[in-house]
Every structure is written in structure tokens, then in C-alpha cells.
Design a protein around this nucleic acid. Sequence first.
DNA 1: CAGTGGTCTAGACCACAGG
DNA 2: CTGTGGTCTAGACCACTGC
Lengths: 251, 251
Amino acid sequence: MAERSASGSPGGSGAAAIGFHPLYRQVRERLLRRLATGAWPAGGMLPSEPALAAELGVSQGTVRKALDALTAENLLVRRQGRGTFVARHDERRILFQFFRLVADRGERQFPESEVLVVVRAAANRRERARLMLSAPARVVRIRRLRTLGGRACIAESISLPEALFPGLWQRKLPNNLYGLYAEEYGISIARASERLKAVMLPRGDAARLGAAPGTPALEIDRLAIAIDGRRVEWRLSRCLTAHLHYASELL
Amino acid sequence: MAERSASGSPGGSGAAAIGFHPLYRQVRERLLRRLATGAWPAGGMLPSEPALAAELGVSQGTVRKALDALTAENLLVRRQGRGTFVARHDERRILFQFFRLVADRGERQFPESEVLVVVRAAANRRERARLMLSAPARVVRIRRLRTLGGRACIAESISLPEALFPGLWQRKLPNNLYGLYAEEYGISIARASERLKAVMLPRGDAARLGAAPGTPALEIDRLAIAIDGRRVEWRLSRCLTAHLHYASELL
DNA sequence: CAGTGGTCTAGACCACAGG
DNA sequence: CTGTGGTCTAGACCACTGC
């Protein structure tokens, strides 16, 4: 990086014009782009800090700041004495980053899943809005029933843009879908935003969960965003919270 | 800090025995202790980085790492060109750190509050468990009704250890309680953990909120923790989510 | 042992705020 | 203009891992 691509040059020459992008931010973005294109395999090891520094023409400290930022975003994992690795969507990560339902008494635990149906269809209005799809787009819909500690407690409906996941509809679906997206389609979910409401359990879900219709249920509306910012998955879950709760830490 | 208080001494002498505590961590803890004892007033400015470094006998870079850590924990606020300040519990901070209910359409907004009753009583079993109180402890209980965009949508019950808040029960209570705790009792809420469930709205809350009993409500059970780790407040809120949702970002 | 990330230091210069 | 935090560099040494 002998030439600063734009603006910002503490310790160097050049002049800042508008908006200051520090060097470590530029390094972060370069590494992020490489990550998004799958330059390193999931779980693979990145070059060492001195190697990256030499390659990018930047000091090791600057590389470190960029790597630390990506680590804070859960995209990398650093282990002293071992190296820096591409974060994987294993159950441990999912459990801590994406799954917030916990049994009232007992350990944090990953749920089992039973796929009920998989269909392809034209995206409806709500799917188009949530996934930012244009009118003629098609989606894959998955219905699942999820079990925690032997109790069926989550009825889940998942919508995916079919264009991003060709052939998904005829696959055998694993319990951990984010792992599948990463391994088979090169799509890495980086973050998600959820909206929670309390609703009356609709008839269909009530039957599936073996509960009375009208039982209060926690409705979780989740939009999952890929590492490159694309909206990848919309998920609507209805949860019986008699023996569960949704844990949220306000730090 | 000519003498390292214990263990860990990269770049120095001494030997690590068990458990390594880096220098910047020790600095963080010293500053944290000073913060907890109110050495600097809320909103006040800390000494500059070079000043702190000289005082603690540590390099500026090490002080910086400690200050950055405390900033990441929302205990400090740093502003380039101005200085480093003790974070205040103003409505802006509360809104972003502690209040997650958002109108489905419309801006993020701080709710209005109407205090219904304030009573003193012996802590019941649930309060003792949540607040870690021993059997004869007493609490102050507050009941509030909260309004968002003109709609009453939250019925709230708050329990506080009376020992921590003498005379609170006869005070006029502001909308922003955390600000009161900090200003009047020197107790700074640093973080909170919430457990969410979907429940049927009980008769009492239903009447207060003008809703039918049995309406589904989002129940938020929040425990607030002070900067020194004490459990300070237990809050149980029941929310009508017809036009609201609880927003949760999974980063 | 060699290689990795983690800590600490010292110094230079930049961006920003306010007098 | 001065003082603040923010960035960048270079180099030394420490802690951890695995051969």
C-alpha cells in the first residue's frame, strides 16, 4: 500500500480532503473484501501479521488494528501461539451469536430441528419488503419445528431468495443452516437483526406445537445479513416461552 | 506504577506465576475503582492521557488501551479535541443502551412515565432471589405506567433494595430513574440483563393499560447491575406489542 | 526450538475543538 | 494558537502452541 488510495495520511504525506479514512480502516476493508470473496477457506489460517504487513506495505501495528476490528465483528478468530483464522459457523458460534433462547432452568443448548416442508414460490409482498427483492423474484420457503430439551417449542418459517441458493429446495437440510449457507453457497452470515413481539399462537402453529390456539407466543422476526451486506434470509419464529426465555444483554 | 502489583510484566522484569494480568488491565481496574468511588463527577473530564500516564508511571499507549476498554463498556466517552469524560445517564444513552422498544413505524423514542404507587415492604422471595438479598431485607416498590407516542403500552413494576436508596420512597420520581440513581445516590448502572417471555396480560395490568385481560404481552424481566457489580434494580415490564417491537441486534 | 499473537514503549505527526 | 484524542511506526520482549 505504497499509495494511499484516498484521503487520510497521518504519518505520511498527502492531504485530507473530505471524510477521513484511517489506514487501518482501509486495511480492514481490503481484508474484508478478500474474506467476502472466499480467498481463505472457512476455518483456514490467514498469513501472519508480519507477512500481511509486508504484503500491504503497512506496519504490523496497523495490520493488528484491522485484524482486531474484524475479530470484534466475529469474522475472524485469533488464538495466541496458533494464528488468525476465518470464523466458522459451527454450533458453538451460532449458539452464542445467533441463538438467544434459553431454558429457564438448565444450560444454554442448541435446538434440534425437524423440517416439515420445503417449497418454491413467488415472493410475497412481505418477503419482498424484508429481503429487498423486486417483484418477480422467487423464494425458497422452509417450515421447521424445533425442539429444546425434548420439548417442541419453536415453529419456524424461513424464506430465502432462490437466486442465491440454487438447488437448495431439493437438498437434505441440516440442523445448522448457516453452516450450510457458508459451506455450499459461500454465503457467510455476519449479523442479524431481530424484532420481537408477543402474539397469539395461530391455529397452524398451535397444532404443530401441540398447544392451544390463542396461547401467547414470542414472535421473532429475524433478518440475516451476509458479510457483504446482502439480505440473505428472513425467518419468522413463534416460540412457546412457558419454560424458555429470550436472553438479552444490555452492555 | 513503578511496582507491578501482581504478575505479568512484558517489557519489564519480574516473573508471571499463575494467571497473567497485562498492565493495561491493571490500569483499567485502577481507573474503574476510581470511577466507582465517584472520584470524578458524572460528566466531568478526566486528566489527559499524558497526565494519567505520568501519574501511573506507564506509557501513554497503555493508558490509551485502558481508556478504550472503559469506553467500550460505555463508562467513559471520548471526544477528539475535547477530552475523556465520565459517561452520564442522559436520555440519549438510556435510549440507545437500555431501551429496546421501538414503534413499528416511526422513530426511536423515549417513553413518558406516570408513577402509580410507591411502597416500602419486606422483600418477597422473588425479589430476594433476583437482587441477592438476605431474608429480612426491605425493598422500595414502584409501579409505573409508560406511554409511547401517546399510547399507554407498558406496565412496569420496579423493586430496589431500600438500603441502597434511603428516602427514595418519598421523593418525586423523574422519568429517567437511572439518572436519579447516579445523581442522588452515586450509583451508576453499567449494564443490565433481560429475560423475555410472552405471557397473557394479567387483570391488573390489563385494566391499567386499557386492554382486554388475556391479551398477549411481552414480559421483560430486567436486572440492572451497577459499575461495581452490585445488583441494584429489578424491573418487570409488561408491554403491549400491537404497534411496538423489541429490537435486538445480533452482532 | 521456531513461529504465532499479545503487550509495552517512545516518538512523530494528524484531526479536531475552543479560545 | 494550544491542548486534546487519534493514527502510524519501529522495535523489543512476553506468553502460548506445537514440533
